[in-house]
């Protein structure tokens, strides 16, 4: 009995030691960002690095809002991110259901087409895609960014893999009960896939929020630009204001972290088990 508790204590000591080491290694960049955001540009890349500045420049956090219209950019980014995330979740989970649980002609081929397009670097089809979108009158519109981001193959793939893990027997039972496929999707699959939906939400949110090249190519009017373009504006041809860049980056991280923290609670073992038992 005694050795068992001993073991348990030893085990948790190891676990926590590991965790703290991990936290340390992963947190250094965050600490660096904050400390750099409180510095003058010239001090940032100096060695030895001063982790805690003697003379913090809080002014950096004020300047970022006045030097460029950062608030407008943040609003644009928030709008785009919300719309893209909602569309992505809806269309992806919908399509994924068919790929995972329905049988139809061309299923595997179509699915493979989806996955393999992820492998094509955007740089290579960016120009024809842009020319095409401009012909449709979509250049310099938010709609263009939404369209580019919302129908990604990634979401379909992710959701499909999660649905694969849900036993077919559940769907069969519902079908026998006379439930339509749409009903099964809405009433059985969606509630069961909260962890996967959370994952997809986090990833889509992060990607759209941090997307840079897409908005840069498409959005040329100032009032339509996004946060990431704004942050790059502090890098000009002849100088780079890293203090301001880091201050703006810290600000731009906050929503991402909030989304992550509020959704990771769905990664709790056992929430799905009751239902799956069926």
């Amino acid at each position: 009995m005694k050795s068992k508790t001993h073991n348990r204590i030893l085990r948790s000591v190891i676990v926590y030691a590991l965790l703290f080491l991990l936290a340390f290694v992963m947190l250094i960049p965050f600490v660096w960002m904050i400390s750099a955001s409180l510095k003058l540009n010239k001090d940032i890349f100096m060695i030895p690095y001063e982790w805690i500045t003697k003379d913090p420049r809080w002014a950096n956090y004020v300047d970022i809002w006045t030097k460029i219209p950062l608030a407008t950019y943040a609003l644009n980014t928030a709008k785009l991110t919300l719309i893209v995330t909602v569309l992505q979740i809806l269309t992806s989970s919908f399509a994924a259901y068919a790929f995972a649980k329905l049988h139809f002609r061309g299923r595997n081929l179509l699915f493979l087409a989806y996955i393999s397009t992820i492998a094509v670097p955007w740089q290579v089809y960016m120009v024809p895609q842009f020319m095409f979108m401009r012909r449709l009158g979509l250049a310099d519109t938010h709609l263009a960014i939404i369209i580019l981001q919302a129908f990604s193959a990634f979401g379909v793939f992710l959701m499909r893999q999660f649905y694969e893990g849900i036993p077919d027997s559940l769907c069969e039972a519902a079908r026998i009960d006379g439930m339509s496929e749409y009903g099964i999707y809405a009433k059985i699959m969606l509630p069961l896939s909260k962890p996967a939906l959370s994952t997809l939400t986090i990833f889509t949110f992060v990607n759209t929020w941090n997307d840079f090249l897409g908005p840069l190519i498409y959005l040329t009017t100032d009032s339509k630009k996004t946060l990431q373009i704004g942050i790059r504006m502090f890098i000009s041809q002849y100088s780079a204001e890293y203090g301001l860049i880091m201050a703006a980056s810290v600000i731009s991280l906050i929503p991402v972290l909030i989304v992550f923290m509020s959704l990771q609670k769905y990664f709790v073992a056992g929430i799905t088990t009751g239902a799956v038992k069926g």
């Binding site: 999660f162 962890p195 990664f267 709790v268 073992a269 799905t272």
Partner: peptide, 10 residues
């Protein structure tokens, strides 16, 4: 993490 949630406790 999301995948692990799908494994039944049973």
């Amino acid at each position: 993490l999301a995948g692990l949630q799908g494994i039944s406790e049973d």
